[in-house]
Every structure is written in C-alpha cells, then in structure tokens.
C-alpha cells in the first residue's frame, strides 16, 4: 500500500532527511502537461500544452489571467491552480484598492510561497498538486518570470519549463538562452513553441487546439493567443528550424542544487 515506511503523512521525516509526501506532490506536477516560460528584456511569454480527454471533449485551460500585468501557466491539478489563481486575483485587487498600485510580481510570488509552505508543515494537510509559472511586468523593475512549486520553492528564471517531458524543453531553452534578452515578442514566441514541441509525445504535433500562448510586457497588458490566431506562428514552425542559432555551443549549466 505504501511505497515505504515514512510516507504516511507530510510531516514525517525519512531517515535520509526527506519528506516523501512533498516529493509525491512534485510528481503530480510532472504528470501534468508541459508549460514553458521565457523572458526578454521587455516581455515574458508563457506557453501551455493543452490536453484533451478525448475527441469529443474540450481542451483543458493552461493559462490564467491574474491582473493586467500578471498571468500564469500551470502544470498539475487544475482545481488547485484555480484556488491559487483566485487567491492571486484577490491579492492583486487588494493592492489596487488599498494603494492604487499593481501588485509587484515578487510579492505575489512570496505570498504563494508562504501559503504553500503552511501546507507542507501541518499534520493532516496536503501540499498543492500544481506548479505555476508566473509572468509579471512590474512598474520600475520590468519583466519577471517565476516558478512556484508545491514544496513552496519560488524562484525567478530567465526561462523555465514544468510538467511532463519538461526536461526536453529545458534543454532547448538552455541552448538558445543567449538569444532571448534582445529578442522581440514574435521571436520569443517562436522559441517558446520550439521548446514546447520538444515536450510532445512521439506521434503528436502542435496545432491550434492543443496550445495557447500568453504575453505580458512593456506597455502591453496580459493577452493570450489561442485558436485561429495561433496559425501564423504554427505555420512558421512547420517550415523553418529555430529562427536563429547561436554560433558557439553554450556551456551546460551547473547541476541543480539540492536544498
């Protein structure tokens, strides 16, 4: 019934110093379809691969608008994501109401972190089963991209992906990271689509139904590109290889810290 002796509840340590239930929650994120996020000096783009349970069913929602300057992409339990996005929307409204100020992305992410941490330390609770990519454009500090996980880790990234087969997308992003800084929105989107394509199963292709794109940036409110509007980008994907290729092979990033 249990995989081992120490995973009966979240607040029990294993002798190796691990909390198994929390690690299982991280697995839930890996089972969701992939989401990709990448950032230039002016914009953030989020992309989601939408699953459908069958020919007759609609596709799931991967991107959520939080405020004019914030949007999220999710991987994992959609119902948990809806709870979190509701919370984030409320916090953004509070900031607008109290201070006439758009909620700074970093503070929003910290609030999520505090909320998720409580679920990892109280007996009888469960961690959220969803990972979030948070894109925000803040007054003064510009574009930001964050990843929030069930273990309450919230980190900022230049580019990141979560969900099933997200490692392939990460590999792509690491290869082209040098191009992102100065890239315009369309280039950023194309890089995003290429990264997202890496996460597909063998016989699948990206189409207007199974992906969605969200953009926020300088002078631009959060907007999503879905359905027919995706055509112009997907057509480019058919014809060409990556838009630009860095001449030199980039050194591999250091191994991830285990904290």
């Amino acid at each position: 019934m249990f995989r081992n002796q120490y995973d009966n509840d979240i607040s029990t340590w294993s002798p190796q110093g691990r909390l198994h239930q929390i690690e299982y929650a991280l697995e839930a994120v890996k089972q969701g379809s992939a989401s990709v996020g990448l950032r230039s000096d002016t914009h953030v783009v989020l992309l989601g691969l939408k699953r459908s349970s069958g020919e007759l069913a609609s596709h799931q929602q991967k991107l959520f608008r939080i405020d004019n300057h914030v949007g999220i992409a999710i991987a994992g339990l959609v119902s948990d994501a809806r709870v979190l996005s509701n919370f984030m929307r409320t916090e953004c409204m509070k900031s607008k109401m109290m201070y006439d100020r758009p909620m700074p992305g970093s503070r929003l992410v910290n609030l999520i972190g505090d909320k998720a941490q409580i679920n990892t330390q109280n007996y009888g609770r469960r961690p959220y089963g969803v990972g979030l990519l948070v894109a925000s454009y803040d007054e003064g500090t510009g574009p930001h991209l964050y990843e929030c996980l069930p273990n309450a880790n919230c980190l900022e990234y230049y580019a990141i992906s979560i969900g099933a087969k997200s490692q392939s997308a990460k590999t792509y992003l690491e290869k082209f990271i040098k191009d992102f800084g100065a890239a315009d929105v369309d280039t950023l989107i194309m890089h995003g689509l290429h990264a997202l394509r890496e996460t597909l199963q063998q016989d699948k292709e990206l189409n207007i139904n199974n992906c969605s794109i969200g953009i926020v940036g300088k002078g631009e409110n959060w907007r999503t590109i879905e359905g027919e509007d995706l055509k112009k980008y997907l057509d480019q994907l058919e014809t060409g290889a990556p838009t630009t290729e860095t001449t030199e092979e980039l050194p591999q990033g250091e191994a991830m810290d285990t904290e």
């Binding site: 201070y99 100020r101 700074p104 970093s106 007054e139 003064g140």
Partner: peptide, 11 residues
C-alpha cells in the same frame, strides 16, 4: 521588503 518597490505619493 527590500524588493525595489516602495510607495509613491499617489499610493
């Protein structure tokens, strides 16, 4: 908070 944000006059 030390995150580069502060309250300006309109806030």
């Amino acid at each position: 908070a030390d995150d580069g944000h502060t309250l300006a006059t309109p806030n």
